[in-house]
Design a protein around this nucleic acid. Structure first.
Length: 987
RNA sequence: GCCCGGGUGGUGAAAUGGUAUACACGAGGGACUUAAAAUCCCUUGGUCCGUAAGGGCCGUGCGGGUUCAAGUCCCGCCCCGGGCACCA
């Protein structure tokens, strides 16, 4: 009989489901704990062994906290809008809702098999209208809000209108405006002006302040996907998903004014201002970099001819006397205005060429300096000298003002530019040879700088700004790298944006109209004239007025889902104030670090907004964040012969067959024997080679191609129980031959991300079938620290499997019987435990409790093994030891624990059991075996009672004959005794 | 280039400044068995001396330092992983 994981696990899964064991109520009488896993996207590939890593960890903590008396919210749901389902819909015509449904069912089945304590009654799906009703509602709140920098929080747009009606606008709230500001700055107006403005004009002005707004914006347009991508969805100039080229383009675009929150998003990361935010330093650092705050000055350079100014942003206003030219980004709108006619052709030629350089080129050709002189000059604010204005593509249109004051002596990029075009410049720091490069040191002392001479950089910066302010030529300015987030996609499978258009102006849909349900369309493709798929919907309008046709991006639904779990069925509000007030912030948030600058930033942004508007009462969503490491796959690759050279030119050797070569022969492909073999293999499928008597003279190379890992054995050889053509996913039906090595076709192995396209995905189902969910759970935890990435290797799984069997056997004994064969009986006794047994128990309880608190699960699994080995040796089957141990094991291996718990005679679920307290009195040692070291090197062990004082230990050690022998009669220089640790004798 | 992690046996890894390599895998040996599987027991960092018992030396990426004592702290390098980057 022994431990039967299949029977036990099925039995308890069903029981938990029927008894609603994991149902959780909002019970204000109990302390709460909120453990959340990052939303999974239900992909068609199903769950692989990497996914559950974080879920198991949070499940252990959740179960542990429940034993500790907390009311634990541990929900799960699906981020079910998204590109893959839509892509699939385009290919097959199947509605994405259908495929999503199928995928979710598969996920659910797999998740259920692992025995998580999720409360499924709280499941949410972002694509469900009852959920996205509230995503749309939050959008409307954002649309109906502006950022008041005086109060430093979002306020209803009505307050702004009131302000305009009373005072007009003097430009003072300009820092709240971002959309279109560079191209079309908003000019000030009086309250009487406001009253005379048409409604359309008023609405256009309000759009400049709304937190969700529509504007002409530079976007990352991806022609292949037919959609706009967010900055963080673009990697190296291509789309993160699919790797299609992306180009910069101006388009009307829904955006979120996240920049208004830049400072607060940054402050929230600061341990001083936000002491409760227990996130890893690397994630916080990634967010800081992404927000990219820099302090400096905005400096205005008046044009030498005509009127107007060039504004630049600089972090080094102290180097103002080193300015030798000003550089504009090719996108800068002033270029056309300031370039004199005789230079226009040359300048515009450069601008066109520079703008058309793809992002990728600009990224890869960093060292190439290019630019053009506009022919225009600006005045230096202090010296009034003429400074030439250049255009250069090293200046970015989207950052700062799109213009820089170039100080070659102090900035290496400016230095490169000046050197390339032979623009003269002078040093601005003492003792610096400007022929070698720029002095970017912050420790430098300034020179050739009039009133700044002799000052250190740190002192010169504020002085320079003060002087600029006095001359009305500049001001203090803080600049952020963070951009407003693009919020519209030219896609079908997302939340419709609850907006309709009247006279070209977007208006919010009344709350009573929500949810605005995704309409049916005939195809999931853009229309012939390039409009998004929603434009295909018929009879889809608001009282005859057109709806917005773009949909929300993937991050919309996941930016607030943690609130919906608190009160998922609420039809009148996204969650009730009582529920929010009870559950508050997420106490433990577990997910991958790849969301560092995407999801985790938007998530914080929306939380702060909801706080500002009074919907919730905290402004950070998650107190503690743990990033689980990636479980990598071990891909298998096989060499296939690609380039071959044949003697006869009369026939073409077509790709009618594929020849594989075992790994060991790849290094020496052109051995005559291999050549012969390869030739004969080609001939087998292409007899015309023989007819033409074409000879293979050289094999030039191989291509490594993926082999599905299921078909490769532990010795890296392809398992040959099927035809090679049916094994190789890329074969396309072509016949495959192989050159073997001792009868084997050996692959090379590579550790990389687990992915369907690499054929290295291992799913948990087979492991559960073979070993059970409890073994899988323990094994994933046993692999190493949770944050660490590691390749998946089942080699060690036997260890955790054996441990469970051994643990089971502490409770049981097997007996052999002539008639019935082997039978098992439950042997737990009521006998009082010995001191040694209690010591094992309490040491384990202590270690496991401490380890769970610090999320060190690998070491707690080790401790269980140590305990089990120890009790096994003591032949301990006593209830007083095994029962508490079973509770402690329950968070890790819930099925076996539940079974043993019921065998111990309990009628209630082990999940309701109280966590056993460890007691220090059982851990007290009477004796300690001291390592005795001489000059730090351990030489022997001596056992003394722990009650002995330092002095007594020292005296006894020195009295020991073996120690005496080592001392050779000499007195030691020093003896260090650390009680219950070590004795060190210094000679 | 900058910012975060990390480098320890054949492998996954453990170690409040205090016996480096716990726990597990693998490997080797043994017990049980007709046999195999399963299970159980023993050995397992390197190297040198010794028939043996036992003992010496070296060992946590490299080089220094602090300390009675360093995988752990400090300084300087090297390598690997992740993030950011013509960011003014």
């Amino acid at each position: 009989m022994a431990y039967e994981h299949k029977r036990i696990e099925e039995k308890w899964r069903k029981h938990w489901k029927d008894a609603k064991t994991y149902r959780v109520e909002n019970d204000p009488q109990k302390p709460k704990f909120y453990a959340l896993d990052m939303f999974p996207y239900p992909s068609g590939a199903g769950l692989h062994v990497g996914h559950p890593l974080g879920y198991i960890a949070s499940d252990i903590v959740s179960r542990y906290k429940r034993h500790k008396g907390f009311n634990v919210l541990h929900p799960m749901g699906y981020d079910s809008f998204g590109l893959p389902a839509e892509q699939y819909a385009i290919q097959t015509g199947q509605h994405p809702a259908k495929t999503t449904e199928v995928n979710i069912a598969r996920y659910r089945e797999q998740l259920d098999n692992i025995g998580f304590s999720f409360d499924w009654s709280r499941e949410v799906r972002t694509s469900d209208p009852s959920y996205y009703k509230w995503t749309q509602w939050i959008f409307l709140q954002l649309f109906g809000s502006w950022y008041d920098h005086e109060q430093d929080k979002a306020r209803p747009i009505g307050e702004l209108i009131e302000r305009f009606e009373k005072h007009g606008w003097n430009g003072g709230d300009g820092s709240a405006i971002t959309g279109n500001e560079e191209l079309d700055p908003l000019v000030e107006f009086s309250h009487t002006d406001w009253a005379t403005f048409s409604e359309k004009h008023q609405q256009q002005i309000l759009l400049r302040f709304r937190l969700a707004y529509l504007s002409e914006a530079w976007v990352n347009w991806c022609p292949a996907l037919g959609t706009v991508l967010a900055n963080d969805e673009v990697k190296d100039g291509v789309s993160e998903r699919g790797g299609h080229p992306v180009e910069r383009k101006r388009m009307p675009q829904w955006s979120m004014r996240m920049t208004a929150y830049a400072q607060r998003l940054l402050d929230g990361l600061d341990p001083v201002s936000s002491p409760g935010l227990d996130w890893s330093e690397s994630i916080k650092e990634a967010q800081r970099n992404w927000i990219g705050r820099s302090e400096g000055a905005l400096i205005r350079f008046a044009l030498s001819a005509g009127t107007g100014v060039v504004e630049v942003f600089t972090t080094r206003p102290d180097t103002i006397f080193g300015v030798s030219f000003v550089t504009l980004a090719p996108e800068h709108e002033l270029i056309e205005k300031i370039t004199p006619p005789e230079r226009m052709a040359e300048v515009m030629a450069y601008v066109t060429q520079a703008k058309n350089r793809s992002e990728r080129e600009r990224l890869t050709e960093v060292k190439r300096v290019s630019g053009v002189f506009t022919g225009a000059y600006v005045k230096h604010p202090f010296t009034h000298m003429d400074i030439p204005v250049w255009v250069g593509d090293y200046v970015l249109g989207g950052y700062g003002t799109g213009a820089v004051m170039a100080v070659p002596a102090g900035d290496q990029r400016d230095w490169n530019f000046a050197s390339h075009f032979n623009i003269p410049f002078t040093a601005v720091t003492e003792n610096w040879d400007i022929s070698k490069g720029a002095d970017e040191s912050k420790e430098a002392t300034l020179t050739n700088s009039v009133f700044l001479n002799g000052m250190k950089v740190a002192d010169a910066i504020p002085r320079a700004i003060d002087e600029l302010i006095a001359k009305n030529a500049g001001e203090r300015r803080i600049n952020f790298r963070l951009r407003d987030a693009a919020f519209g996609r030219q896609r079908y499978w997302g939340e419709p944006i609850p907006i309709y258009y009247k006279d070209g102006i977007p208006y919010p849909l009344p709350e009573s109209e929500l949810p605005l349900v995704l309409p049916e369309v005939d195809k999931f493709l853009p229309t012939e004239d390039g409009e998004p798929p929603l434009a295909r919907a018929t009879n889809w309008n608001y009282n005859g007025l057109a709806y917005e046709t773009t949909t929300m991006p993937g991050w919309a639904g996941s930016s607030w889902y943690f609130l919906r779990y608190m009160d998922p069925g609420n039809e009148g509000r996204f969650a009730s104030p009582e529920a929010i007030n009870y559950w508050q912030q997420v106490d433990l948030y577990v997910g991958g670090s790849e969301h560092a600058t995407g999801h985790l930033l938007y998530f914080r942004f929306w939380t702060k907004f909801l706080k500002d508007r009074g919907w919730i009462n905290f402004d950070e969503p998650a107190k503690k964040l743990v990033n689980q490491g990636m479980i990598q796959g071990v891909s298998a690759l096989v060499a296939s012969v690609t380039r071959t050279e044949w003697e006869s030119k009369t026939i073409v050797i077509a790709n009618e067959s594929i020849v594989l070569v075992s790994k060991g022969m790849v290094d020496d492909l052109n051995k005559p024997k291999t050549i012969d073999l390869v030739r004969s293999l080609f001939v087998r499928h292409q007899p015309e080679i023989e007819v033409a008597s074409a000879e293979l003279v050289h094999i030039h190379g191989v291509t490594w191609r993926y082999v599905p890992v299921d078909n490769v054995d532990s010795a890296d050889a392809v398992v040959l129980d099927k035809t090679l053509t049916s094994i190789m996913p890329w074969a396309d039906g072509l016949p495959i031959e192989a050159v073997f090595e001792n009868g084997k076709l050996v692959c090379k192995r590579e550790v990389e991300k687990m992915s369907k396209s690499k054929w290295n995905v291992v799913n948990p189902d087979d492991i559960i079938t073979k070993y059970g969910a409890d073994t899988l759970r323990l094994y994933e935890m046993f692999l190493g620290p949770i944050e660490q990435s590691k390749p998946w290797d089942t080699a060690g799984i036997e260890g955790t499997s054996r441990f469970l069997k051994k643990f089971w056997n502490l409770f049981h004994t097997e007996s052999r019987n002539q008639e019935s064969g082997i039978s098992e009986s439950f042997i737990v006794s009521e006998e009082a435990p010995s001191k040694a047994e209690l010591k094992i128990l309490h040491a384990t309880l202590k270690k496991v409790e401490e380890d769970i608190e610090k999320m060190s699960f690998n070491t707690s699994v080790s401790q269980f093994m140590i305990a089990c080995n120890g009790l096994h040796e003591l032949k301990c089957s006593k209830r007083q030891v095994l029962e508490p141990l079973t509770i402690a094991l329950a968070p890790f291996a819930p099925h076996i624990a539940e079974e043993l718990w019921s065998l111990l005679g309990h009628n209630t679920s082990i999940t309701t059991a109280t966590w056993p307290k460890w007691d220090a009195q059982y851990l007290v040692e009477d004796n300690f075996s001291y390592p005795i070291s001489f000059n730090g090197k351990t030489r022997m062990q001596l056992e003394f009672p722990t009650a002995l004082s330092k002095e007594e230990v020292e005296a006894q050690v020195l009295a020991n004959p073996e120690v005496q022998q080592r001392l050779e009669g000499k007195a030691p220089k020093k003896v260090i005794v650390v009680p219950k640790r070590i004795v060190n004798i210094v000679l």
